[in-house]
């Protein structure tokens, strides 16, 4: 049995589903549309989700590699009471959202960073997130947001 967990829910994969990419599975099979397809080659980062806590490009991740593992998407990071995760709120407060196509991937990438470094410098944020492209913001407010989110999480 091919079982996976997505946002704390368990799913069993059909043999057809095992042939999909993680991105297609999330979007087409589970209707989790937060992860976006920007390039299909793993360069832009818009499809970023966490696989066992680590950021992956879901467009380049085959479902076979996901079997037995746990996926976290942007739809799964809200608090249990439905309130926003501090990083989501930080993206709003810092003005880091413009078109929003890169935003879910940016937030997921930042969570990967914070799991390894809870208090990153601006330089460290830029280095850790350089694989996520944004064409609207010039990145500065995204760096602001990650800094803000990190400090709020530390003070929790």
């Amino acid at each position: 049995m091919s079982e996976i967990t997505v946002n704390e829910k368990k799913y069993t994969l059909s043999s057809e589903q095992e042939e999909l990419t993680l991105l297609d599975y999330l979007r087409e099979e589970l209707n989790l549309i937060g992860a976006k397809n920007g390039c299909g080659e793993g360069t832009c980062g818009a499809c970023t989700v966490l696989l066992d806590g680590k950021a992956v490009r879901s467009c380049r991740t085959s479902m076979k590699k996901v079997i037995g593992k746990s996926v976290l998407t942007i739809e799964g990071i809200k608090n249990n009471d439905g309130s926003l995760h501090p990083m989501q709120q930080a993206f709003i407060d810092a003005g880091a959202v413009q078109c929003g196509f890169c935003t879910p991937g940016m937030i997921m990438q930042s969570m990967d960073l914070l799991s390894r470094n809870s208090n990153p410098s601006r330089e460290e944020i830029r280095k850790a997130m350089r694989g996520n492209l944004c064409r609207c913001t010039g990145y500065q407010k995204i760096v602001d947001a990650v800094e803000l989110g990190a400090s709020r999480l530390q003070n929790k």
């Binding site: 549309i33 937060g34 809200k78 709003i92 003005g95 959202v97 935003t103 879910p104």
Partner: peptide
């Protein structure tokens, strides 16, 4: 001055609908 975006909430939640959605 704080930023106002009417669409920020749905965008940070992955709920905003783009063409392919």
């Amino acid at each position: 001055k704080s930023c106002f975006r009417n669409d920020a909430m749905r965008k940070v939640c992955g709920e905003a609908k783009f063409g392919d959605d």
